[in-house]
Amino acid sequence: MFQRVTVYLDYLCPFAWRGLELAYVVAPQLALDLEIRHYSLEQGNHPQNAGLPRHAPAWKLSEQPLESSRSLRAFLASHAARQQGKAAHLRFALELFRLHHQDKRELGDDETFVDAVSRAGLDLERFMADLEDEEDRRIELGRDLEEAGELGVFGTPTFVLPSGDAAYFRFTQLTTEPELAVNLWELFTAVLENGAHIETIRRPRR
């Protein structure tokens, strides 16, 4: 029986990319059902939202003009891919991350989206039609960001486990070797679910 794990991500974030790659590797081995949701670092760190509760921001990314944001169009594209199903959405997200962080492609460029769609095996005509339905994609993004705010998400990747435990975790290295990835995932989840209620582990920086 599969267990759902929700992943909150932002395509700008290399840590979110590494975290999603890790989860993708371990999912078939540990029977995880991955579901992608979105959190905006731009919205979370925007000066107009400073001091406000995360669930009640004054500046909302989903309401901004496309040209004012580095990430908005990528989020809308992600929601367009989501219309083709959870598995297709996951593949698209991985390919968009790889194109941006590995290949150094522009995140909001149509060519980048087309290549992500092709690599992920999605229907391009349907994707472009769904992307052009901008009003609905903005509504969907707004819902994701509201859910992230209610949960208290502040960084990416944030994983929500089947137990309900949730945490942000920064992966400093890309881990795709299956055995190592499983060991790292099990260590991460053990810390979250441990009865000691460990909340913060942070290494000093030099």
Rank of each mutant, 00 (worst) to 15 (best):
61 L>T: 03
61 L>G: 04
61 L>C: 05
62 S>L: 02
62 S>P: 04
62 S>H: 15
62 S>D: 10
63 E>H: 13
63 E>T: 09
63 E>I: 03
65 P>A: 09
66 L>V: 07
67 E>R: 11
67 E>M: 09
67 E>Q: 13
68 S>T: 13
69 S>T: 10
70 R>W: 08
70 R>L: 12
70 R>T: 05
71 S>K: 02
72 L>I: 06
73 R>G: 01
75 F>G: 03
76 L>R: 02
76 L>D: 05
77 A>P: 01
78 S>N: 08
79 H>Y: 01
79 H>R: 13
80 A>Q: 04
80 A>N: 01
81 A>G: 05
82 R>D: 13
82 R>Y: 06
82 R>E: 14
83 Q>W: 05
83 Q>T: 13
83 Q>A: 11
83 Q>S: 12
85 G>F: 08
85 G>Y: 09
85 G>H: 07
85 G>R: 05
86 K>L: 11
86 K>S: 14
87 A>L: 14
87 A>R: 13
87 A>G: 02
88 A>H: 07
89 H>N: 12
91 R>A: 15
91 R>S: 13
92 F>V: 09
93 A>E: 02
95 E>H: 15
95 E>W: 08
95 E>F: 08
95 E>M: 11
97 F>W: 06
97 F>N: 01
97 F>K: 00
98 R>M: 02
98 R>Q: 14
98 R>N: 09
98 R>E: 12
99 L>M: 06
99 L>P: 00
99 L>F: 00
99 L>V: 02
100 H>Q: 07
101 H>S: 05
101 H>D: 05
101 H>I: 04
103 D>W: 11
103 D>H: 13
103 D>T: 08
104 K>N: 10
104 K>V: 07
104 K>H: 14
105 R>P: 00
105 R>M: 09
105 R>D: 01
106 E>M: 09
107 L>Q: 06
107 L>W: 08
108 G>N: 15
108 G>L: 09
110 D>Q: 10
111 E>H: 15
112 T>V: 05
112 T>N: 02
113 F>Q: 00
113 F>T: 04
114 V>K: 09
115 D>I: 11
116 A>V: 07
116 A>E: 06
117 V>D: 03
117 V>E: 01
120 A>M: 05
120 A>N: 04
121 G>H: 05
121 G>N: 07
122 L>T: 04
123 D>I: 08
123 D>T: 08
124 L>D: 07
124 L>V: 10
125 E>V: 12
126 R>L: 13
126 R>V: 10
127 F>W: 04
128 M>W: 10
129 A>T: 12
130 D>N: 12
130 D>P: 02
131 L>E: 08
132 E>C: 04
132 E>D: 14
132 E>G: 07
133 D>S: 08
133 D>L: 05
133 D>Q: 13
133 D>E: 14
134 E>V: 11
134 E>T: 12
134 E>C: 07
134 E>Q: 15
135 E>N: 10
136 D>S: 14
137 R>N: 09
137 R>W: 03
139 I>F: 14
139 I>E: 15
140 E>K: 12
143 R>K: 13
143 R>T: 11
143 R>G: 09
144 D>W: 01
146 E>A: 15
146 E>S: 12
147 E>M: 09
149 G>A: 09
149 G>Y: 02
149 G>Q: 05
149 G>P: 00
149 G>H: 01
149 G>L: 06
150 E>F: 12
150 E>G: 03
150 E>L: 15
